[in-house]
Design a protein around this nucleic acid. Structure first.
Lengths: 227, 227
DNA sequence: CATGGAAAAATTTGATCATATTGTGTCGGG
DNA sequence: CCCGACACAATATGATCAAATTTTTCCATG
């Protein structure tokens, strides 16, 4: 998501400006949510007309949103003219792990150098909600808060290109993550966030990077192993 | 570019199947070329209607192509509803360099383990055309062959996700690279490709990775310095 | 009388939709 | 089992509306 889009999103609350958000963008955001937090499972076909009805949007906006998501790897164009949610192979997962290991620690290091105390508080609140979700077995909330934690760090890191890459990776393993959580429950899911928060408070970029690295590796391994 | 798309592209030569490539994809590919190899300069506005006339396509396909390119970072959505070719800041260049340093050597290492003698030949031919372009001062050909060299390695590496990331990065610095070449000429441009070819022949993944790393760093530094 | 600038008109461009067209897959008859 | 017709979904067009930008106009001021 670009900066301009976030601006439009945040002004979405202004009831009058609601129409200011182009339909194709609204559709994009809704579809994106569905991919990240689960409505859509790997392999599931995505039809234009289905979305037109479900989201009560026109055809053109839906089309544009789908193109965008396919470009980001969240959807896959199946040669004929069918679009589906991709099912990552274990080789894909391995690539995703490599990429996340390369990108996320760097983002966290950058975040560490710039983070403010109030931002650390916000992260802590996210992590608390995440803990609650884990003990409640609330998969949906777990997924949302887990992503929120990382996304918040990206925002703080203030590195738009690396963030775009990282977000793209989330879109690719999101559906699989959901499946894993649904199968294994929320109990033994990775949470190196406490460790990360400690490091952030200490301003120890190296340590923060390592904590996130562990988090990433644990998460990806869990996805890989449940194939 | 996905595998399915490459298949469609290669069958584009079949005169009869020409219509089999959807218009939105044709437009996407043409626009992509323009971004990578120059027609478009950083900061330049891109209008839907302009493309409709220039490419003699309908509105919807152009729209879809633009959405896709914006998702890949090749174009930028300017808050109001205007789209331009982004002008990378020096901070952006630095992020791009980090990302390329993280991704490209890995791709080359994977390529080294799988490459066949005939593929090495093909790479060598590309590099010869590249050398010719350098001594002729033919910027367009230089850019095309330079990209071709790297892209060929990506194909051989057979790592679709990492390749997608790398391709995305090219789209982001392509226009700037063109500007740099136009200004400095083709003479002292980076070419660690001989070194890379040696390493590939020897099957020395480490060495190949280092050669490409040098190539990447040199290229990016040149872009950075000419801001 | 020239000039700067605000307001209004005109033009350009983007967003969306309804609809026609084309391609795919399927199902029933041969 | 193959072939062709049918139904459905995707592709693509052009029209229409809305927003933003540019140009023009006109008045007030120096």
């Amino acid at each position: 998501m670009t900066g301009a889009e976030k601006a439009m999103l945040s002004s979405a609350n202004d009831t009058e400006n609601a129409t200011r958000i182009p339909a194709h963008q609204q559709v994009y955001l809704m579809l994106r949510e569905q991919v990240l937090f689960g409505e859509l499972t790997p392999g599931q076909p995505v039809t234009i007309q289905g979305l037109v009805e479900q989201l009560e949007a026109g055809m053109t906006p839906v089309r544009e949103a789908i193109r965008r998501l396919t470009a980001e790897g969240a959807l896959e164009f199946q040669g004929n003219r069918r679009v589906t949610v991709p099912t990552p192979s274990s080789k894909d997962i391995e690539e995703l792990m490599y990429a996340r290991k390369a990108i996320e620690p760097e983002l966290v290091m950058r975040a560490t150098r710039q983070i403010s105390p109030s931002e650390i508080d916000e992260l802590e609140q996210i992590d608390n909600r995440l803990d609650a979700a884990i003990s409640n077995g609330d998969v949906e909330t777990y997924l949302r808060q887990n992503y929120a934690f990382h996304a918040k760090l990206y925002t703080i890191a203030d590195a738009p290109i690396l963030t775009a890459i990282a977000d793209g990776l989330w879109l690719r393993f999101g559906p699989s993550l959901r499946v894993v959580c649904g199968r294994l429950g929320t109990q033994n899911l990775p949470d190196q966030h406490k460790e990360t928060l400690d490091a952030l408070r200490q301003g120890d970029a190296e340590k923060a990077a390592n904590a996130i690295l562990d988090d990433v590796v644990q998460g990806m391994e869990q996805v890989r192993d449940s194939l």
